[in-house]
Amino acid sequence: MEKKKILFVCLGNICRSPSAEAVFNGVIKKEGVSADFIVDSAGTSGWHAGEPADRRMQSHAIKRGFNLTSLSRKFDPKTDFDYFDMIIGMDDSNIENLKRMANGTADLGKIHKMTDFSQAFDYDEVPDPYYGGADGFELVLDLLEDSCEGLLDKIKKNEI
C-alpha cells in the first residue's frame, strides 16, 4: 500500500498547522498505522520560515503529550500539490489562498478544511490563537484532537 501523504496548512505555520501535524502523528501512532502516512505542515505565508512553532503553542501541546518539532516553511504550490494527497487548511482564509494557488481540478480536489472532520465540535474553522490567551491554544488543541481522529476515521472507511 502506498503511503497517504497529508499536509496541514495555516497562515504562518507556527501554531495551528504544526499542532495538527503533531496531533495527527500522535493519533496514527496510537492506532499503530504511522508507517502508512507521511505528514507535514506549511504556511500560506513565509513570514516565519525556518522558525520553530510558537513557544506558547508548544507549551500547551507538550502538556497533552504532543511535541511540535517541525520548522515553519512556506507552502509551495509547484511541488506540494503534486506530492501530497490531501492538503488541509485550518480556516476559510487558508482555504481561499490554497484555491487561488491551485492549478486545475486535481489540485482543488485535494483541498479540505480541518473542521470538516470534526466529530464533537460545531466550529467551522480552527481559530488562530496567536493574538489571544491560553484558552485559545487549548481550544485549538481540542479541535485538532477531535478533527484528527475524525480524519483518520474517514480515511480508514475510505470516505476520502
Rank of each mutant, 00 (worst) to 15 (best):
M1E: 07
E2Q: 12
E2D: 11
K4T: 14
K5T: 02
I6C: 03
L11S: 07
I14G: 00
R16D: 00
R16P: 00
E21Q: 13
V23C: 10
F24D: 00
F24V: 10
G26F: 10
G26N: 09
V27G: 07
V27F: 07
K29C: 11
G32R: 09
G32T: 08
V33F: 12
S34Q: 14
D36L: 14
F37V: 10
V39A: 04
D40A: 14
T44K: 06
S45E: 01
G46H: 04
G46D: 05
W47G: 08
W47H: 11
H48S: 04
A49G: 01
A49R: 09
A49C: 04
G50W: 04
G50K: 02
A53L: 04
A53G: 11
R55T: 13
R56H: 13
M57F: 12
M57Q: 12
S59E: 13
A61K: 04
A61H: 07
I62L: 15
I62N: 09
K63V: 03
K63T: 04
R64V: 00
F66V: 01
N67W: 11
T69D: 12
T69Y: 11
S70G: 08
L71M: 04
L71C: 09
S72W: 00
K74E: 08
F75K: 05
P77V: 02
K78N: 15
T79D: 10
T79W: 13
D80M: 08
D82S: 15
Y83V: 11
Y83H: 13
D85C: 12
M86S: 11
I87C: 06
G89S: 09
M90I: 14
D91E: 15
D92K: 09
N94K: 05
I95G: 01
I95M: 06
N97E: 10
N97I: 12
N97G: 05
K99T: 07
R100Q: 12
A102M: 12
A102C: 08
T105R: 14
D107T: 03
G109T: 02
I111K: 01
K113L: 08
M114V: 05
F117V: 01
F117M: 00
S118I: 01
Q119E: 11
A120V: 06
F121G: 00
D122K: 15
Y123K: 02
E125G: 00
V126C: 00
D128L: 01
P129C: 07
G133Q: 06
G133H: 03
D135W: 14
G136Q: 09
F137N: 02
L139P: 03
V140Y: 08
D142G: 03
L144H: 06
D146P: 12
C148S: 10
E149C: 11
G150D: 05
L151T: 12
L151I: 13
L151G: 05
L152Q: 03
L152C: 09
L152A: 05
D153V: 13
I155K: 06
N158I: 05
N158S: 12
I160V: 14
I160N: 00
I160D: 01
I160G: 00
